[in-house]
Amino acid sequence: SEYETMLTEIMSMGYERERVVAALRASYNNPHRAVEYLLTGIPG
């Protein structure tokens, strides 16, 4: 799925699956924002 592709691409940058899933959830599946959250911390 498109979601799995995003997940895999972000994980390939060296992040753990659960952190990527949390970041995508926080960003409403916006991959650019999710990466930003992984770099700066997930808000909330």
Rank of each mutant, 00 (worst) to 15 (best):
S1L: 13
S1I: 13
S1Q: 13
S1V: 13
S1T: 14
S1D: 13
S1K: 13
S1H: 12
S1R: 11
S1A: 12
E2N: 12
E2K: 11
E2C: 07
E2R: 12
E2D: 14
E2S: 12
E2M: 11
Y3H: 05
Y3G: 03
Y3V: 05
Y3M: 06
Y3D: 04
Y3Q: 04
Y3W: 12
E4Y: 11
E4L: 11
E4W: 11
E4M: 11
E4H: 09
E4S: 08
E4D: 10
E4A: 08
E4C: 07
T5A: 14
T5Q: 14
T5V: 12
M6T: 06
M6Q: 04
M6V: 08
M6F: 08
M6A: 06
M6Y: 08
M6D: 03
M6W: 11
L7N: 00
L7T: 03
L7V: 15
T8H: 14
T8Q: 15
T8A: 15
T8L: 15
T8D: 11
E9N: 12
E9F: 14
E9G: 08
E9M: 14
E9Q: 14
E9R: 10
I10W: 04
I10P: 00
M11N: 01
M11K: 01
M11F: 03
M11Q: 05
M11Y: 03
M11R: 01
M11D: 01
S12V: 06
S12T: 08
S12M: 12
S12W: 05
S12P: 01
M13F: 06
M13D: 02
M13L: 13
M13Y: 07
M13S: 03
M13T: 03
M13Q: 07
G14I: 03
G14A: 02
G14H: 02
G14Q: 02
G14L: 03
G14D: 02
G14P: 01
G14S: 02
Y15P: 01
Y15C: 01
Y15Q: 02
Y15H: 06
Y15D: 01
Y15S: 02
Y15L: 02
Y15G: 01
E16L: 06
E16V: 07
E16D: 13
E16S: 13
E16N: 08
E16Q: 07
E16P: 14
R17Q: 07
R17M: 09
R17I: 06
E18S: 09
E18L: 06
E18P: 07
E18V: 06
E18D: 14
E18A: 10
R19M: 15
R19Q: 15
R19N: 10
R19V: 14
R19S: 13
R19T: 12
V20H: 01
V20F: 03
V20K: 00
V20Y: 02
V20Q: 00
V20T: 03
V21H: 05
V21A: 09
V21L: 09
V21I: 14
V21E: 14
A22M: 08
A22E: 14
A22P: 01
A22K: 07
A22D: 10
A22Q: 11
A22I: 09
A22V: 08
A23I: 02
A23Y: 02
A23V: 04
A23H: 01
A23P: 00
A23S: 03
L24N: 00
L24A: 00
R25D: 09
R25G: 07
R25K: 15
R25T: 09
A26H: 08
A26G: 04
A26M: 09
A26N: 06
A26Q: 08
A26F: 08
A26P: 01
S27G: 07
S27H: 06
S27T: 10
S27W: 04
S27L: 03
S27Y: 05
S27C: 07
S27Q: 03
S27P: 00
Y28A: 15
Y28S: 14
Y28K: 15
Y28R: 14
Y28M: 15
Y28D: 15
Y28E: 15
N29R: 04
N29D: 08
N29E: 05
N30W: 03
N30G: 01
N30L: 04
N30I: 07
N30Q: 08
N30F: 03
N30R: 04
P31R: 09
P31K: 13
P31Q: 09
P31T: 05
P31G: 05
P31Y: 15
P31L: 13
H32M: 13
H32Y: 12
H32N: 10
H32A: 14
H32E: 15
H32I: 15
H32F: 11
H32G: 12
R33L: 15
R33K: 15
R33N: 07
R33C: 07
R33W: 10
R33M: 15
R33F: 08
A34K: 00
A34V: 03
A34T: 04
A34Q: 01
A34E: 01
V35F: 07
V35T: 05
V35D: 00
V35Q: 06
V35L: 15
V35P: 00
V35M: 13
E36P: 00
E36D: 08
E36N: 06
E36H: 12
E36Y: 14
E36I: 11
Y37F: 12
Y37R: 04
Y37P: 00
Y37K: 04
Y37E: 03
Y37W: 09
Y37H: 05
L38M: 04
L38Y: 02
L38A: 01
L38E: 01
L38V: 02
L38S: 00
L38I: 05
L38W: 02
L38R: 00
L38D: 00
L38K: 00
L39T: 10
L39R: 14
L39E: 12
L39K: 15
L39S: 09
T40V: 10
T40N: 15
T40Y: 15
T40W: 13
T40C: 09
G41I: 10
G41T: 11
G41Q: 11
G41A: 10
G41N: 10
G41M: 11
G41V: 10
G41C: 08
I42W: 12
I42Y: 11
I42A: 09
I42K: 08
I42P: 09
I42C: 06
I42M: 12
P43M: 11
P43C: 07
P43Y: 09
P43A: 09
G44N: 13
G44D: 14
G44I: 13
G44V: 13
G44W: 12
G44F: 11
